[in-house]
Design a protein around this nucleic acid. Structure first.
Lengths: 199, 199
DNA sequence: GGGCGCATGTAATGAGTTACATGATTGA
DNA sequence: TCAATCATGTAACTCATTACATGCGCCC
């Protein structure tokens, strides 16, 4: 329903055709969602059927025709309801990263660490990119709050990964030692005569 | 694909029937995901078709039959691939809360604040619940990391909401003042003779 | 003349949800 | 005896994705 809220809201601010909306979302609202073109066109079709928007076709030169959408009274009502809901709800969020963690024991700690380091690098890179955006925006604009929100969550992700890697490092060291001891033990087992006993 | 990883991983640890898996996920992994029963049964069917798991039917007493699933070599391979991917990727996350924010100007600030306070209350409540869980778990278990992850993100959400509400409060105050001034202005406009002029 | 941007979609597929259906056992 | 728990699913639907299809205009 959040895509519906977004589209209705944007059309409330200004009537637009599909491509225009899609372009706006792709370029200027890319931290908000990644609504794909076919999904958007499909959504617009459904909103029109539901009477939330009306269409007016126009054509500039010999270009493909533009279907410009405008919010109706019905659409406006739906928009307000969705907005209220969006502002008051705090739906449960799930983190897919946690699923992999569950099975950390099914993989050598060294490999797990290498993979998680890649994840960390990706988070770092995104954070650097967003920090620029945050600095460039006015502290009261909606764009600022979106970016700030992302920044805070990525910082959290960084912290969490750091904690996790620190723990894993300890475990990896222990595993290395165990592997080393086992190797010595079995090597010693072959020439049985020279095998040292525990004291 | 993350649900697939979860199911394959759990079946790798121990063979189980559908209801058992569903119960485990609902009760002990509820912070990880909220996989519904029909979705799970559907997924198990597809995994069996793909040869990732095999089924063995059994019956205890006159109870409905149990279809116990066990991971195959194919499934094991798929599991490892998915696990590696899950550990290394850091997919972009989107926050639906930001969408509503975009349209804050389309609503009186006082109403927006009231709605956002409800959101904050919901976040606070969830946080209190999770804090208990975090305290109850060993700092090295997978369960701990899931809970800790949630806790960190909820704390972030709290911070962000607080920043936002602080800003909105300022704006609301300003709006109140403007409304007040406008009221005075129009009241003054009726008995035109007594209207004070700016100095 | 070739590729990018403008502008619209359809078709096939997949992932997940809700509501519905069935029927036995166990405990209050 | 009534509700909850055990155990399985189907059917209909929604939402979204990917891949495909079309064709003009503009700039290098």
């Amino acid at each position: 329903m959040d895509h519906t809220l977004l589209v209705l809201g944007l059309l409330k601010l200004e009537e637009m055709h599909g491509y225009q909306l899609s372009d706006l979302i792709d370029k200027r609202l890319k931290y908000l969602t990644d609504l794909k073109k076919p999904t958007l066109y499909h959504l617009l079709g459904k909103l029109e059927q539901a009477g939330a928007v009306t269409q007016s076709v126009s054509r500039a030169g010999n270009r493909p025709e533009r279907r410009t959408y405008r919010l109706t009274a019905v659409g406006e009502k739906q928009f307000r309801a969705l907005l209220r809901q969006n502002l008051q709800d705090a739906p449960a969020a799930y983190f897919n990263d946690d699923i992999g963690l569950l099975f950390l024991s099914e993989m050598p700690a060294a490999e797990a660490r290498a993979l998680l380091e890649q994840k960390r690098a990706a988070v770092d890179a995104r954070l650097a990119e967003i920090a620029q955006g945050v600095a460039a925006h006015d502290a009261n604009s909606p764009a600022y709050y979106t970016l700030r929100h992302h920044q805070l969550h990525l910082l959290t992700e960084q912290t969490w990964l750091a904690e996790l890697l620190a723990q894993l490092k300890k475990r990896a060291v222990r595993e290395d030692i165990l592997a080393c001891l086992a190797a010595i033990e079995s090597a010693a087992a072959v020439p049985a005569k020279t095998r040292r006993r525990k004291i």
